[in-house]
Nucleic acid binder design. Structure first.
Lengths: 114, 114
DNA sequence: AAAAAATGCAACCAGGGGGTTGCATCATTC
DNA sequence: GAATGATGCAACCCCCTGGTTGCATTTTTT
């Protein structure tokens, strides 16, 4: 394994929590809001969903833990912003998977043609 | 929204269960095995992980529910195979998200330059 | 036909996840 | 400085998930 690969966050053990963070409808909705609606505060965000503000806070914490969002204090309010890096990691992981699949298909095809 | 988009399984409500299925290290391992190791049986698969065969069965059921694997009976054993379609759906959903992000960035840039 | 192999099915258990309510705290604004 | 607004923190609840064990069922194999 190359050093770059060893440090890559797209290794299996790191990819699972990332996908887990994406695996909730409310959290995906939050990502969409922050993505297209720009940086927002918790109370603003919770207005768009029918769950309590505290529930939204928990979801944002999960997303932050996965590195998908970032927050910063600004006076009395906390601003949440989308963080595209980890999304790219997930993207790359999926690509590696399907590439491995294509390789396997290639092997099978070569085997059949023998 | 176009008809194709309306029917696409990459809409938010369908994407969440898909990512949730991917959000477990054991299940990702199973996908990798089926992907690169070819179709396998449950007992063969459970040999590669340190959980019981029944636990692996449950994981495979989750993956099947999400459309990521498929199974077929063959005599007394059941063969599990990787199913690449849904992976492509997940891939597309991530791309749509990051595209939306890029659009938002573009808007911001245009606004700043005014 | 009996033994062995692969799977199916069910009950059970511990822990975490998603949700809530209630209240404390900190910054603004009048 | 008192009221209001935005968060933070904690306790609690329910249920789903990931895991287990034990046993029944179906096919092979000898």
């Amino acid at each position: 394994m190359s050093r770059a690969e060893a440090l890559s966050p797209t290794r299996l053990k790191d990819a699972a929590p990332l996908f887990a963070a994406l695996g909730d409808a409310t959290r995906l909705g939050l990502l969409v809001s922050l993505c297209s609606g720009g940086p927002l505060t918790v109370t603003r965000l919770s207005g768009q969903f029918d769950v309590s503000r505290q529930a939204i806070t928990k979801h944002l914490d999960v997303l932050a833990e996965a590195g998908l969002v970032k927050s910063s204090r600004q006076g009395r309010e906390r601003i949440w912003t989308f963080e595209p890096k980890r999304l790219e990691d997930a993207h790359q992981y999926l690509e590696r998977l399907s590439r491995e699949w294509d390789v396997a298909l290639g092997r099978l095809k070569a085997f059949v043609e023998t």
